[in-house]
Write a protein that binds this DNA or RNA. Sequence first.
DNA 1: GAACAATACATGCACTCGCATCTAATGCAA
DNA 2: TTGCATTAGATGCGAGTGCATGTATTGTTC
Lengths: 128, 128
Amino acid sequence: MDADDVVETWHYVLAKHAKAMCALERELGARHGLGPSEFEVLDRIVHHDRKLRIQELCDEVHLSQSALSRVVGRLEKAALVSRDVCRDDRRGVYVCITDQGRARHAEAVPTHRAVLAEIFSEAPALRS
Amino acid sequence: MDADDVVETWHYVLAKHAKAMCALERELGARHGLGPSEFEVLDRIVHHDRKLRIQELCDEVHLSQSALSRVVGRLEKAALVSRDVCRDDRRGVYVCITDQGRARHAEAVPTHRAVLAEIFSEAPALRS
DNA sequence: GAACAATACATGCACTCGCATCTAATGCAA
DNA sequence: TTGCATTAGATGCGAGTGCATGTATTGTTC
């Protein structure tokens, strides 16, 4: 991959990221009252199917620890997750998804998939 | 491209975007006093090699019109561009790069390229 | 030409983000 | 145990963004 390909790839990433983020923000927000970050956190917890430490989530979503802490705060206020003290390490916090959170996530997944399909279906795929 | 490929591509885009943006912000900021948006605007003007309307820039960078207006404001304050009234359409504004702006851009290009090369050189390329 | 819609750009505002910092708990060494 | 560095997570703060709106200019219709 030479320098021009790198720049071309970067422009592809920029364009797709902007388009998808904008659409996700609009659709997830309007239909399900979720931002992209909120959805991503719910999605990670559902995917693992267990409570996760804040730190574990930090490794999976592309957010700073402080931003993640606030996302969890917003989700908690909306009763979609609950914070649970970690008995082993009382500094830690488990993020547990609630039934409401599961329901909201399940409801939002099709929207999420549809938005991405719209944007990526005809796009060049990744090589290898 | 089926649904799983779409999600995989999306995660690739998210990861590369986060990594590159973060690195660009750090390196361009520390070495040249530019943010990614500022660099992008200078880069577009240099690429076209002429003054551009705000609206033309809007089509090329992934920013809202309001955000772009402020980026131009910051660049103007740093004397890297100047705003010029458009005689044909007095609503319009031309953004002209200054000599200082050209110099700063030229100085920043290698950093920009190096950061992207570091992140994308070993990455899967775009298919066709 | 006058009235009104449309367009170009600027700005108030609310929101999210990252950085720096704070608090609390843990680990480790003397 | 005491003292201090380290780690987990929360929070104050400033910066950048998009949306809605404001101001000025242009186009259009009568």
